[in-house]
Design a protein around this nucleic acid. Sequence first.
DNA 1: ACATGACCCTGTGAGC
DNA 2: TGCTCACAGGGTCATG
Length: 301
Amino acid sequence: MPELPEVETIVRGLKPLLENRHIASVVLNRADLRRPFPENLAEKLTGKRVVRVRRRAKYILCDITRDITRNRGREVDRDETPLTLLIHLGMSGRVFADAPTVSVPPRKHEHMIVCLESGHRLALVDPRRFGVVDLYETGHERETRYFQTQGLEPLDPDEFTLVAFAEKLSRKRMPIKTALLDQKLVAGLGNIYVCEALFRAGVHPESTAADIAADVTALSLKRLWEVIPEILQEAISAGGSTLRDYVQADGKKGAFQTLHRVYGREGEVCVACGSAEKEGRIKRIVQSGRSTFFCPRCQKV
DNA sequence: ACATGACCCTGTGAGC
DNA sequence: TGCTCACAGGGTCATG
């Protein structure tokens, strides 16, 4: 489920719980999700301090290190490599944060539980198990399989420039909808926000990516480029989207779903053009096996 | 190199 | 109520 805004929301929720806290223990209820868990994952995390929680694309990254204060003045092992815990929530991943005082019965599909010395417990729940948990050396993320091919970070203005965006699209003969879903071009967009961005920019999902990038005189490229960070920011402000299986780190639900203009609205009257005729209502088509929602009136090829 | 489709897995809601 | 089917926010791999 989670797209960039949901992951960002979760990261923000996790920060106060995790940063500068020590991990007391880790419970693993299975050996893998989409990929096997790293070897000795629980041992590698236990006793460590979380330095920082951050996001890159749709990944949650926790930088952890050895706890200096625990060693009572003794020499810290400098060879201890700082690690980064990487979590991807796949389609159905959620993070639950349980307060120290409450006792919570085990949930279904609780694959990993991180117990902090503060008494908080973080439970990773992922029914479909499309998620990923991995570890790598801090600072070496570019070398990991996850970030070697990642595209532009849309909320980084230095990275997501109009020129870079155009360059990424210019060699793609695929529909713009499919191109924007490709994480190698823009990192973090998912099906919902691609549909919403195309709608807001007035771009037809079946337009060819390269054609949009090539036509500098048309406003399509620029509008799309403007609208993508705009929508993501709005969604973050609203606390992330919620469909059925997404919950923020603190358990509250996001509210951006009510702001969806086209996603999940097949057959409804477009909020922009208001065309009540059958031909003018929100349409659903399938592109590369994924649903696309759009307004045939407002979104021109 | 590029583009498409199958596949990983469980849960949910619609329709009968 | 109970069944079956289509579909779900993602990413990877094999194939053309």
